[in-house]
Structures are given as structure tokens and as C-alpha cells.
């Protein structure tokens, strides 16, 4: 049992993490580098420049897609070959690690379901993966949107506590919604799912972001899209690994 849990969770999880890292470099890394150029002041958004007229600034900063791409290429180039390679290798390693952690939790859930008499097939595994995405990324993102570098948020410890509470409540709520058999379970699920958002995430009274709003929005959307694809793959891989380890 323990071997099946660890081999299934870690191997499937790390593989899903490598897939996620691929998507990270295809969709997200360029926006992180661009956000850092605004964070360091290498690029200045018109609203933070102070005296630039809005209409003129708008046409300067948001001309077309090719314009953005120029900044991205510049940012990547300035890192230098070695440091960029190290940075990206660490991103691949840690994305693999975090998904290995997710994978272990997911397979532990499969094992618990099996103890309770419910076999998790590959299709149900994908649903568990999507539920994991909702619990660990989508629900927390409704209070604390994925942050582009340069964003300024409330106290980190308070945000982490709200994040953890939201993950636990949402995970519990979804499990009750999916497998609960009574009206009381459905009501409890609703309360658990809503509670973190009724309480509300910690926020500052003012906004301090240095990057254009459009860039932050694009980053958040892509982060969530990549998360959904990665979690669906994680659920599929974990269910395959878990069930193939049965014999």
C-alpha cells in the first residue's frame, strides 16, 4: 500500500509537473519577466509616470502584441545565459515538486475512497484533478488573484492563513457535494464553499501595482488556464498510476 501510494503519487505528480512547466514557459514566463521590468522601473507604465496624458500614454504602451514581445525578449536577454538557465531549471524542478506534493495528496484521497468502498477510475480521477484545481487554485484566486511580480499585497502571513483556510474549506465542501448523501451534507458543502469568500481575503486599502492592469489580467487568466490543464493531467496520470499499481 505505502509503496503504491508513493510510487503512484510522486511519479505521476512529477510527470504532471513537467507538463505544467512546459505550459508555464509557453504562456506565463514571458509575462513574469515583463512584470519584473515594471517592478524594477526598467519600464514605466503611463499611469505611474505622473504627467503623461492618458490618451498618448495609451497608444504608446499598448500599441500591439509585437510591442509587448519586444520587451519580453529584452528582459530574457538581460538575465544572462547562465542565470536564466539556473532560474528556469529551478522553476522546472519546483513545478515538478509541487505537483508531486499535489499527486501524493490526490492518491491518498484515492486510497481513502477505496477503503470506503469506492474505486476511482481514470475518468473520476480527472474529476478529482479538476476539483483539486478548484480547491487549490481557483477558489483562492477569487480572493487573492495570481500576482504578477510587482504586485503589492496585504501581510504575507495573513494571506497564507486565508489561502490555507480556503483550500481546506473548498476541498471539504467539494468532497461533501460529490459524495454526501443527505440534504444536510449539501447544505454544509454550500456553507464551506461560501465561507472563505464571505469572510473575505486580506487586502490593502490602496493599490500599488506598477504594471498595466491589462498585463496583470492576462497573467491571472493564463495562470488559471495553465493550472486547470495541469490539474486535469495530474488527475488522469494519478488515477492511471494508482490503478496500474493494483496488481
Amino acid at each position: 500500500m505505502i509503496q503504491r501510494l508513493f510510487v503512484g503519487g510522486l511519479v505521476a505528480g512529477f510527470a504532471a509537473g513537467l507538463f505544467s512547466a512546459l505550459l508555464h514557459f509557453a504562456f506565463i514566463q514571458e509575462l513574469i519577466l515583463l512584470g519584473e521590468k515594471y517592478e524594477t522601473g526598467a519600464l514605466v507604465h503611463f499611469e505611474t509616470a505622473g504627467n503623461a496624458p492618458a490618451a498618448e500614454g495609451h497608444s504608446d504602451d499598448n500599441g500591439d502584441d509585437g510591442h509587448s514581445q519586444d520587451h519580453v525578449d529584452g528582459a530574457a536577454g538581460e538575465q544572462g545565459g547562465d542565470s536564466a538557465l539556473t532560474r528556469n531549471a529551478l522553476t522546472v524542478l519546483f513545478t515538478g515538486l509541487i505537483y508531486a506534493g499535489y499527486g501524493l495528496m490526490l492518491v491518498a484521497g484515492f486510497a481513502l475512497a477505496e477503503q470506503l468502498g469506492r474505486k476511482i477510475d481514470t475518468r473520476e480521477g480527472v474529476l478529482w484533478g479538476v476539483a483539486g484545481f478548484v480547491a487549490l487554485q481557483l477558489a483562492p484566486a477569487m480572493g487573492l488573484a495570481p500576482e504578477l511580480p510587482g504586485s503589492v499585497g496585504a501581510d504575507i502571513t495573513q494571506r497564507q492563513i486565508w489561502w490555507l483556510g480556503t483550500v481546506v474549506a473548498t476541498g471539504g465542501g467539494l468532497a461533501l457535494l460529490a459524495y454526501g448523501r443527505s440534504v444536510a451534507a449539501a447544505v454544509a458543502a454550500g456553507v464551506l464553499l461560501a465561507a472563505p469568500h464571505v469572510i473575505g481575503a486580506p487586502h490593502l486599502d490602496e493599490y500599488f501595482g506598477s504594471a498595466p492592469a491589462e498585463l496583470g489580467a492576462e497573467f491571472a487568466s493564463r495562470a488559471l488556464g495553465v493550472g486547470l490543464a495541469s490539474w486535469a493531467a495530474l488527475g488522469w496520470l494519478c488515477a492511471r498510476a494508482w490503478n496500474s499499481g493494483r496488481v
Binding site: R87, T95, A145, P146, R159, A223
Partner: peptide, 10 residues
């Protein structure tokens, strides 16, 4: 970079 892209408070 992973923390930012997976939505952890960083």
C-alpha cells in the same frame, strides 16, 4: 516563478 504561476501568495 512557480509560486507566481500557481497562485501561491509569494
Amino acid at each position: 516563478d512557480m509560486r507566481h504561476s500557481t497562485g501561491f501568495p509569494c
